[in-house]
């Protein structure tokens, strides 16, 4: 069934060029179709890139959320080593913790470097000790761990990243959905505009339709003439829009850690081929929109 449906726009484009000839060369409505399809596809490429980038981000954040946590120990300098040792002991005996280790002063310096520069004198600052916790596959009981930590090391605070990672991951998921919704809306808007253009063309060619009926043309033949023309126009415009959109995405700045999400807006690997699917989608949209408009108009013109 899907193969048959996929074949329909292709048939519309390849078969019966005679049917296409019987419709006079149209002006504005046909070019409007090409322009609309091109502009919509251009926008759809960016929406697609946005969706894919948001998806990658959501996945990355969700994975980080699922598998890591940090314990921050704030205590007077003389108690810090003792509390660190106590926390590591607690973690060793906590089910669901795969690994735990204290960050070295050098690692903590690197974490603070973006804000304070490379020459930060760490020894002069009362910095908390950070312990990186890696979660096991089965997970751990965060509430139970917090209670044990408060008993064994009063200065230790468990940050399982949920508080800030989860909203960000959810936001990225929502952004991805918005991207896909944008593509759907762009498709619907394109269908609406092509329907309007097709209706205008059909109305402008009422005399042609009358002549064709007089000589025995079936509705399917007349509809095919219009469908073929509009599908071809839409595919041509959409292909140009897809190419320009892809070039636009490729010209965005390369991904940079400091740049965060905005510089990661693009395609990766085979994802660069995805914009080529948009003209195919446009062909289906144009085919369905024009065919529906044509048959509706032909029934009305009886």
């Amino acid at each position: 069934m899907a193969a048959i449906q996929q074949g329909l726009p292709l048939m519309a484009m390849t078969s019966d060029r005679q049917a296409d000839r019987v419709v006079p060369p149209s002006g504005a409505s046909a070019w409007l179709t090409s322009f609309t399809a091109g502009a919509m596809t251009f926008l759809a490429v960016f929406a697609l890139a946005l969706s894919l980038a948001s998806g990658r981000l959501a996945t990355r954040w969700a994975e980080a959320l699922d598998h890591t946590a940090t314990i921050r120990i704030s205590a007077p300098a003389d108690q810090l080593p003792l509390q660190t040792k106590a926390v590591l002991e607690v973690l060793k005996t906590t089910p669901g913790i795969a690994a735990a280790r204290a960050e070295t002063p050098e690692e903590q310096r690197k974490l603070l470097e973006p804000w304070f520069g490379p020459d930060l004198p760490l020894d002069d600052l009362p910095l908390p000790q950070l312990i990186e916790v890696t979660e096991g596959l089965d997970g751990y009981d965060a509430e139970g761990l917090k209670q044990r930590l408060s008993a064994e090391a009063p200065g230790a605070v468990l940050d399982d990243h949920t508080r800030w990672r989860r909203p960000m991951a959810e936001a990225a998921q929502r952004l991805r959905l918005l991207g896909y919704l944008s593509i759907a809306l762009i498709g619907a808007a394109m269908a609406a505009m092509i329907t309007l253009a097709a209706n205008a063309a059909l109305s402008a060619n009422a005399q042609v339709i009358k002549v064709l009926r007089l000589v025995g043309a079936r509705d399917s033949y007349i509809a095919r003439a219009f469908v073929r023309r509009f599908t071809l126009r839409a595919v041509t415009g959409s292909l140009i829009g897809a190419i320009l959109g892809t070039i636009g995405v490729a010209l965005l700045p390369a991904q940079d850690v400091a740049g965060g999400f905005l510089t990661g807006l693009g395609f990766t690997g085979f994802g660069w081929l995805l914009p080529l699917a948009l003209p195919v989608l446009a062909a289906f949209v144009a085919f369905a929109a024009t065919r529906t408009a044509a048959f509706r108009t032909l029934r009305r013109l009886t």
């Binding site: 019987v22 007089l214 000589v215």
Partner: peptide
């Protein structure tokens, strides 16, 4: 209608096609 030929007083044609193509239109469709 393919078995009935019709001639109107204000006979209409497809103005963008040459006469021969217009005459052959019933065969084309």
């Amino acid at each position: 209608r393919r078995r009935i030929g019709v001639v109107h007083q204000d006979c209409q044609f497809l103005d963008h096609l040459p006469l021969a193509a217009n005459v052959a239109l019933p065969l084309t469709v």
